[in-house]
């Protein structure tokens, strides 16, 4: 899904029925904002990729540009490296 980084609102999504898009968008953008504050405070710059490993799946997020956050929800068995490469490729291509 594509999320407005500042607003936490969904721009576009393709989700399974049981995934609450608006909740994921709002919380993922808030998480990205806070992690961004933490990493900037630590002097390591803005985060390029977030990987949240949960008990029943994973949530990954990467800024597509300064305004848009790309968020992927996947099963635990997903190849996160491949997802990361694809997301960074899309970000580099400017969506």
């Amino acid at each position: 899904m594509l999320v407005s980084s500042e607003d936490g609102l969904v721009i576009a999504d393709a989700l399974l029925e049981d995934v609450k898009g608006n909740a994921v968008a709002a919380l993922a953008s808030s998480l990205a904002k806070r992690v961004g504050n933490a990493s900037k405070s630590a002097g390591v710059g803005a985060p390029l990729f977030l990987h949240l490993d949960a008990s029943a799946g994973v949530l990954v997020a990467a800024p597509a540009n300064s305004d848009i956050l790309m968020v992927v929800v996947a099963e635990r068995s997903v190849n996160v490296g491949l997802v990361r490469l694809e997301m960074l490729r899309i970000a580099e291509a400017g969506l």
Partner: peptide, 10 residues
């Protein structure tokens, strides 16, 4: 700025 319209709406 610590919140967002998405969070408030949610």
């Amino acid at each position: 700025t610590e919140s967002s319209p998405g969070l408030v709406q949610l």
